[in-house]
């Protein structure tokens, strides 16, 4: 039975690959950050000439040359990819940005991904309709790369909304610091998308008119532009309201200070009213039996009256 070679085969590391790796089909390989391109040719069972940077110290998962073509006509791409990373140590989910190494040979499509993002990438790749050829598989891969930025922006927006809700009671800068970081990450997503756009445009110029990859890259331009416009819009709108968050935190502190000042004033009123009766002079009602009770009721009564009036004007709102 012939299996469709374009259904994306996953190898978690070069070591997991069979001794004789098939040269036709679409493959995802997990790599760690330590090894460079050097040595992958042998591990993948491909000619060393497939790796234009085999002598360079460019590591998979790091941003090297964005786009290059070896003498053999094999294309090498570095594409930024955003994914969710489950950090078991910290017990939280984080948004990570990494770089995929893509090798496009005449009969094969190889994607080198850092180990942490591998599952996510593979799940996204196999979710859609089955590719029948290299061009369809490549289209799917590049769509996953572009949409990963959109998903990343949605994740950041969801977290920003959570933090914004937390700001209602916040009087310190903890939430604000995270908001600033997230706004920065959103800006990074925009830059990253523009980077993908730049790579694809360069590629478009360099492809021959008869190249079967040309229609794929052309088709992707529109989607990239749409996602880039959307993420840029979200980024612009969310960063422009950051100052307003500062105002919210300030208002929270002000509200507490307002209540404290209010209590201070309410306590000062009886003191001020009773004070004349401390004077070392002849006092009116000085010998009346109920003067003390009267003065206490008078001082605190005035204070209560003030509190009642203040409450009507929202002085106690917090």
């Amino acid at each position: 039975m012939d299996l469709n070679p374009w259904l994306w085969t996953l190898w978690r590391s070069p070591a997991a690959m069979p001794a004789t790796a098939p040269a036709t089909g679409a493959f995802v390989i997990g790599v760690d950050q330590r090894e460079g391109w050097r040595g992958y040719a042998a591990a993948l069972g491909l000619p060393a000439t497939w790796f234009a940077s085999s002598d360079a110290a460019v590591k998979p998962g790091s941003q090297g040359v964005r786009l290059e073509q070896a003498d053999t006509g094999v294309w090498h791409l570095h594409l930024p990819y955003v994914y969710d990373f489950q950090d078991a140590e910290r017990g939280e989910e984080r948004l990570m940005e990494s770089v995929l190494g893509v090798i496009i040979g005449p009969n094969g499509l190889w994607v080198l991904s850092p180990g942490e993002g591998l599952d996510n990438l593979y799940r996204e790749l196999i979710e859609m309709s089955d590719p029948d050829n290299r061009e369809q598989a490549l289209l799917r891969l590049l769509l996953v790369v572009i949409h990963s930025h959109d998903l990343g922006a949605q994740r950041i927006v969801a977290r920003l909304k959570e933090l914004r809700a937390d700001l209602r009671k916040s009087m310190n800068n903890r939430e604000l610091r995270e908001i600033v970081k997230l706004n920065r990450s959103m800006g990074d997503l925009v830059v990253s998308l523009r980077d993908v756009g730049h790579t694809l445009r360069t590629w478009l110029w360099e492809l021959e008119e008869t190249d079967p990859l040309l229609p794929i890259v052309e088709e992707l331009q529109a989607e990239l532009r749409r996602v880039e416009d959307g993420v840029t819009l979200i980024w612009e709108r969310y960063t422009s309201v950051t100052n307003c968050y500062t105002g919210i935190v300030q208002n929270n502190s002000h509200s507490v200070m307002k209540i404290m000042t209010l209590w201070l004033a309410l306590l000062m009123i009886p003191i001020a009213l009773i004070m004349p009766f401390h004077m070392e002079t002849h006092l009116p009602l000085g010998h009346w039996h109920f003067t003390w009770y009267f003065l206490i009721a008078y001082g605190f009564g005035a204070s209560l009256l003030m509190a009642w009036w203040g409450r009507r004007h929202g002085f106690f709102d917090i």
């Binding site: 300030q250 208002n251 307002k258 000042t261 209010l262 201070l264 000062m268 004349p276 002085f315």
Partner: peptide, 21 residues
């Protein structure tokens, strides 16, 4: 914030008035 600050200002004036006695 200004609305809250207005109350501050009012309260502070009241406290000054209450301090004179």
């Amino acid at each position: 914030n200004n609305n809250v600050n207005n109350i501050f200002k009012f309260m502070a004036a009241l406290i000054i008035l209450a301090t004179i006695p």
